[in-house]
Design a protein around this nucleic acid. Structure first.
Length: 576
RNA sequence: GGUCCCGUGGUGAAGUUGGAGUUCACGCCGGCCUGUCAAGCCGGAGGUCGCGGGUUCGAGUCCCGUCGGGACCGCCA
């Protein structure tokens, strides 16, 4: 039907007779003999000079045959790649007409309510932004596949209808027609299957896997999302990091982003200590500084005896942060569990302007100035509290104050390793709660503390972070029954209970489970960052709204009674 | 489950102290127009101010509820 695409023609083709197909982007009329029609497809637009007698309106579908001609020098449009040429002597065939679209098919629709864009997603995707994002997504998927295949990974598909397991995220459930009253679950991840593939000798498994979780939606969370899911046998952590690293570096390269070519590795403890976050954004400094020693003998009551005192320097921000903003920041700190927030502004003469300045000794002031490299115009923020509270609060403020927008590079991947094996204690059972999942192998140096000091045990779990976004996590798994039993025992899961909950998963491990570990990262998040989008809905063709609905299809909908009858399901009336 | 913000012709916005569905830009329809490129000029049509209730002589505006959208907390092993 066509010889070229709409973004393809250049002065080199002048004189050729070509045929283009596409949609009418705009039409500019100049009397009864002349009109300009910009014909658009996903590659761009070409100006067609047409006889102004054909009824051709926005979004009509055309096939245009004409001669590629140079534009007069004064009419060249340098803003578009095809701006040096135009199609003349055009024969226009209207393949289909179109109603006026509800919003312009251009970057101007970026201002349109997202709900309207989702209701007419088929028109929204016609826009350059969505075309770019979806094609980037395809390129990233392809690069990931290529990198995994090149390393000997085998793609194995795992089922979508799986048994419900009580742990973890809330599941979507699917009623069984043949077994009324019984249900499948949709997989939150292929976790259990991929480990069984290791027992099965697949050795290196990967899958671009759809995962489903019935949890509340956010800018970075949808009910259904895609993961690069992988698992490897006979490996240690570094082997997993190398394999996954190759995939995400290839993805960034496919997107034309500079990564520096390597992935930095830091421990969870260092990440918390330096950045106050287990997913630090390395694109900017403002690191947390250790101030506990400075105030070891302080008279200032808010600091005296604090387990940890840490501070950040919001360089040059003194003027920007007036009383209102500082109060709001203090409220936020308190909401996060801090007792308070101390702020000091550095005046032109180097002295501190602060409600608490008068409580600080000269030595403390001098040490503070030195540790935080304080310069006139700086805003210093200090939290004295438990170590984790001080870190988390300052880490949050650091992001609030300094974090660059998502579309700004560079693109710095980061492995965060040595996560704690257990995080906190379950209020009901009094047992430690698993930091990752209960099949995570503890750090070999810490195994001896499993029973005596479980909260100090590090695990062989790790996260992959990109510019402050958690892309995914993984671990080396427990493959020996004895160690698994010890971990279950610490978690308060009896043999009987373990058998009941995870029997189908654990029993195969008795038949020769190899040492193995793996990883999974979210494709949607990765593509969003590489596309410079703050919201993963912008890189998903047909996403759901925050209430889990699709404005285009109106899903979810009621079903007819016959369907319910077949499934043996009765719907209760809505709660009053 | 909770906190905050938003809802006004097809789209995006403005709407003051409560005083007539008022305004602006884009789009749409018609006319003019031979070098535009978000063309330009002239004219026109288009509304349940999300919905329901309340206060008031009078509500887009104030109050309550509700629905929808968004950001976040909880949740996401």
């Amino acid at each position: 039907m066509r010889t070229h695409q709409c973004g393809e023609l250049r002065p080199e083709q002048i004189g050729q007779i070509v045929t283009l197909t596409g949609w009418v982007a705009t039409r500019r009329e100049h009397g009864e003999k002349l009109a300009f029609v910009d014909l658009r497809d996903h590659t761009g637009v070409t100006q067609c000079v047409v006889d102004n007698t054909v009824d051709v309106r926005a979004e009509y579908v055309l096939r245009v045959t004409g001669t590629v001609a140079a534009r007069p020098a004064e009419n060249v449009n340098s803003r578009i790649p095809t701006g040096g040429i135009e199609l003349q002597d055009c024969q226009v065939e209207v393949l289909n007409n179109a109603e006026a679209p509800p919003f312009p098919i251009s970057e101007r629709a970026d201002q349109v309510a997202e709900n309207t864009r989702l209701q007419y997603r088929f028109l929204d995707i016609r826009r350059e932004r969505m075309q770019r994002n979806l094609r980037l997504r395809a390129a990233v998927n392809s690069a990931i596949r290529g990198a995994m295949e090149a390393q000997g990974f085998v793609e194995v598909e795992t089922p979508m209808l799986v048994p419900s397991t009580p742990e973890g995220a809330r599941e979507f459930i699917v009623p069984s027609r043949q077994q009324p009253g019984s249900f499948y679950a949709l997989p939150q991840s292929p976790q259990l299957f991929k480990q069984l593939l290791m027992v099965a000798g697949i050795d290196r498994y990967y899958q671009l896997a759809r995962c489903l979780r019935d949890e509340d939606l956010r800018a970075d969370r949808q009910y259904e999302f895609m993961q690069l899911d992988a698992e490897m046998s006979f490996v240690n952590q570094d082997d997993v990091h190398t394999a996954i690293g190759a995939a995400v570096l290839a993805a960034a390269e496919a997107a034309g982003k500079d990564t520096g070519g390597e992935i930095v590795k830091i421990t969870w403890h260092e990440a918390m200590n330096r950045f106050g976050s287990d997913k630090p954004d390395l694109r900017f400094g403002m690191e947390l500084q250790e101030l506990t020693d400075v105030f070891a003998a302080t008279e200032f009551k808010a600091f005296a005896g604090a387990a940890a005192i840490k501070g950040i320097n919001a360089s040059g921000k003194a003027e920007e942060f007036g009383r209102n903003k500082l109060d709001a920041m203090t409220d936020k700190a308190k909401q996060m569990g801090a007792k308070g927030l101390v702020w000091l502004k550095v005046a032109a003469d180097g002295t501190f302007e602060s409600p608490v300045a008068k409580f600080l000794s000269e030595a403390e002031t001098a040490a503070l100035r030195e540790k935080l490299s304080a310069q006139p115009g700086d805003l210093l923020l200090i939290v004295a509290d438990k170590w984790d509270t001080a870190c988390e609060v300052l880490g949050t403020l650091r992001n609030d104050i300094g974090r660059p927008p998502v579309f700004e590079g560079p693109y710095r991947y980061l492995w965060v390793v040595d996560f704690p094996m257990f995080v906190g204690v379950d209020e009901v059972s009094g047992r430690p709660r698993p930091g990752h999942h209960p099949f995570t192998q503890p750090h070999p140096d810490d195994v001896h503390m499993l029973e005596s000091d479980p909260l100090s045990v590090r695990s062989q779990a790790y996260d992959l972070v990109l510019n402050g976004w958690e892309l995914g996590s993984g671990s080396i798994r427990i493959h020996q029954h004895e160690l698994q039993a010890r971990v279950f025992s610490i978690l308060g899961i009896s043999d009987e209970e373990a058998q009941k909950k995870f029997g189908f998963f654990l029993n195969p491990f008795r038949y020769g489970a190899p040492p193995h570990g793996g990883f999974a990262f979210g494709i949607d998040r990765l593509v969003a960052i590489l596309a410079g989008e703050e919201n993963i809905r912008e890189v998903i063709a047909f996403p759901k709204t925050q209430s889990g609905q699709d404005p285009m299809t109106n899903a979810p909908t009621a079903v007819i009674q016959k369907q319910l009858d077949e499934l043996g399901i009765r719907v209760l009336p809505p709660k009053a």
